[in-house]
Write a protein that binds this DNA or RNA. Structure first.
Lengths: 203, 203, 203, 203
DNA sequence: CATGAATGAGTATTCATTCAT
DNA sequence: AATGAATGAATACTCATTCAT
């Protein structure tokens, strides 16, 4: 009736094989041969599903971004809504969970992907810009509501984003305990009060 | 007395040409040809000064790490010393200044260098581990002195390091204002109090 | 009664699509994909009608040669026949008309087809040999009848055939006016008197 | 002092190997591997001398065109000059001789080169256009001097050029006797008087 | 009859590295 | 020390052809 595998199945196999190859060998070192060997298909089959190596990586990133979009929800204020900090916490927690579920993609998209291929860089750059804008707008609202301290939001965004990225990367690398609760709590503590507590630190 | 160029001068020319080539084309896309063309020497000459492409990059990173080591000083407690927070601020500021002086290296070492070449990764990994340990030990002391809030230090390190990296990269990329004072102040504010100020955020 | 398309119709569609693809992209650059896309059928269908790419081209050439055979008639001498030169002129004119009707095939068969594929070369070679023999025999009869000047007939054939080919190719390419009368007249003038008229040219 | 071979020698070796490979296998079927094998150098060496396959072919054609340019001289009228027809004959003869000296290039440039690669076509097209213009201008002068019969010069050019090409190709292919005198005489006879001599041919 | 997914041999091109001069 | 010609392994990508459905 149909082929041995549906097109969607084949595509997924190639996607997973590509992900594994990229994670194992690095983005530029992984070859199309590695990918097709992993998927158990012939060389040419790859090109029936993806126009080139860059395209698989883009598809991988796109999937991850879509999954991320599902987990992050705008914070809504209202009497029937959970308190904002709880909503924020839920968002952080869902992102941490996603990262722990997809460690390979996290390594690729957050750590490995820059500076390898100018075209890929564009993709990543667009992604991060979107993320930055999202956080920036949230911070702006927060500042207007006096929930977020005043300050240069671009720097806040950078610290927040960089901190989150590094935590997730470290978690999937096993450098820090892969417990979403612990990680989420620490991130929230950082956001809520920073690191330093003792007034004696002040000059 | 000596040749037109001393060995050290040639080496430096190659180093600078390599840095520029890496920054402009990316670590894996930059070729030895790009480097020697930039340095104005013949192809073979490169190999008189560096064993291979990886070695130039390592030398570049080593220089940067050495410069970093010079700027970061342990925080010393004592009646005749500046207050700890001021010492911390000075460290942060010197690092920010170094980053702004060497934007190319920052892009390379902090943003582009992972996932390209397993050997290079090792180098970077060792560097980051050293940095992590340094920060971790500082935090440990801080916690013992009740200057740093309790919590999982590995996560704290990750957030702090990731946040710092991202800020520096964004600064050299021009995404955020390249004013060391502004950047330093924002980082210190983040460390001192996080982001969130309003109690209404709590559930 | 029958399918949507008869076998012959499908075959013709493929043939025309192949002709267009060959003319547009060149014989070796045109792919089977181009052909089936032009014919609106699936890849495998092509191989139900032709054994391979070479076979379509052969079929195309065969059709053209057959059409050519219909237009070229032996010159017959006799009291009730038109004068020989008129018969020759009619032959030339019919060939010119065929060429102008089938410009694509002319480009393919007369201009593009050599040196691409050894197998195709054989086909063309056989065709040209046939044509050469035909002309050669006609010239032989002409010489015996003192209608054609004496001389090395192989060279005469080559000049005549090459001249005719180039005129036709130029005509379908639009380099010379596509008027069969003008072209035929010029060819006849050339055959009848060459190019040079002035005795002063002689040494 | 210098390399084993000078750059010019290597280049010539590659050029000759390319010519042989192109002639033997056809323009599109010949691979870079064939060429380097013929020249006895490594794969990469080819690309030190030519940017790609098209570039070698262009170089080959350019050389041939230059050689052709040396052999063809404008016809000069004057009391101390040889008669025009003798000058024309010398030109024809020198071209025939060149063709017989460089049979490979003749096959390539005159017979095989069209329709294979659009880029190569441009090259050839430019060549032929130059040749056409040259002949066209000569014919125009000839017509003004009443040395050439009136008529559509574009068609005359096509017949003349096509005829010459075919004769040369046939000669290098061995289809007609490779005697420059015979060939030249026949070409001159054709130009001077065409093929048909008997008035009875006229209607 | 028709399909189109899968195949895999074939090829151009790049580039780090070597070494004779 | 410096050169730069030469190397050749490595790799992405194409496309004619097959065959299970």
């Amino acid at each position: 009736m149909s082929q041995r595998k549906t097109k969607a199945e084949r595509r997924r196999e190639l996607l997973m094989a590509a992900r594994d190859a990229f994670v194992e060998k690095g983005l530029s070192a992984a070859t199309v041969d590695d990918i097709v060997a992993g998927a158990g298909v012939a060389r040419g089959t790859f090109y029936l599903y993806f126009s080139d190596k860059r395209a698989v990586f883009e598809a991988l990133v796109d999937e991850f971004l879509a999954a991320l979009g599902v987990r992050v929800r705008s914070i809504v204020l209202g009497p029937d809504e959970p308190p904002p900090r709880a909503q924020l916490r839920d968002n952080v927690r869902r992102v941490v969970e996603l990262a722990l579920e997809e460690p390979g993609i996290v390594k690729l998209a957050l750590a490995d992907a820059t500076g390898v291929d100018p075209d890929l860089d564009d993709k990543l750059h667009a992604f991060y810009e979107g993320l930055r804008s999202l956080i920036d707008e949230s911070l702006e609202v927060g500042q207007q509501l006096k929930m977020v301290r005043p300050g240069d939001r671009r720097v806040m965004v950078a610290i927040g984003l960089g901190g989150l990225k590094e935590v997730l990367v470290d978690a999937v690398r096993g450098h820090i305990e892969a417990d979403p609760d612990v990680i989420t709590d620490e991130i929230m503590a950082f956001l809520a009060g920073g690191l330093l507590v003792d007034e004696r630190l002040d000059g």
